[in-house]
Amino acid sequence: MMSRGTRLVVVLLALAVACALPFTLSNFRLFQFTQVYIYAIAILGLNMLTGYNGQFSLGHGAFYAIGAYISAIMMDRWNVHYGWTIPVAGVLCLVVGFLFGLPALRLEGLYLALATFSLALAVPQILKYFEHWTGGSQGLVLSKPSAPFGLPLNPDQWLYFVTLAVLVVLFWLGANLLRGRVGRAIVAIRDNHIAAEAMGVNSALYKSLTFGVSAAYTGVAGALSASAIAYVAPDSFNVFLSITLLIGSVIGGLASISGAIFGAFFIQFVPNWAQDISKAAPWAIFGVFLIVFMYVMPFGIAGAIRLLWIRARRSRVAQVPESRETAPTQAPTSS
């Protein structure tokens, strides 16, 4: 595992690069990076639930959709400033996720997968049904927010920075949550919920809360996407969105924080390259990656990097025999 100092350096370097990007890339590329950050937030939410807490969700696209529509409806119907819609979407998704998590407590493993999968299938229909609010299958057209205080940024650059800021705050909060006492309880429930309960962890409460927080992250991502794309429509929140998020989560590394970012890059850029082959190719490639990763890299990209890092450390330590005692011997479960 990287030491605290190394990790801080890596994070700061990445942030510096991220802040420089808007001034070097075209607006279209920049929009793609904004989308990467949005996916990363949603995937982190999914990682908390599926990776850390061991509850399946094949329907996280539903919370993404709820977040996006809450934001869009507030902007469209009540002219609320987009900045306010994001926390509201987060809080409402927290409540919805918590409520969905309550019955989910009774569903283990496969049954939860079934229930969430059906939820993902049902979402576009439900959205179309409440036409009065959601604009039906036409969707809602929004306007892109522009930079305040006369900052010399175009709307794409401004949105990029807003998304980046939300990402940094949410990842910082998430990391603190998952690496602390609550995070240990969440992981303990996944590994052995009976033992966790015996140690005094309130399994029911933690599981529903994890569901809520996970939904809130994904909802915030959805709300950001409504502003970034400036358009919401039911059919963009179909079951394949949920599968996309799961793919990002698996490829990046299920139980890891940095994995969410790798996964987001994967689901944003790989289809772009694959599109050149055929319209259907991105999904075929996604599917193959999904299966191959399960065989050879079940801990995803983040897991592979961690493994390489440990190997590199070990070989370095092996050259200096006196420090062998301090060599890390086993793979940690979180990055």
Binding site: W283, A284, F289
Partner: peptide, 13 residues
């Protein structure tokens, strides 16, 4: 489950 989902998207695409 993830492997069968992979199959799902492969067959579909």
């Amino acid at each position: 489950v993830i492997v069968t989902l992979g199959l799902l998207v492969i067959f579909n695409s």
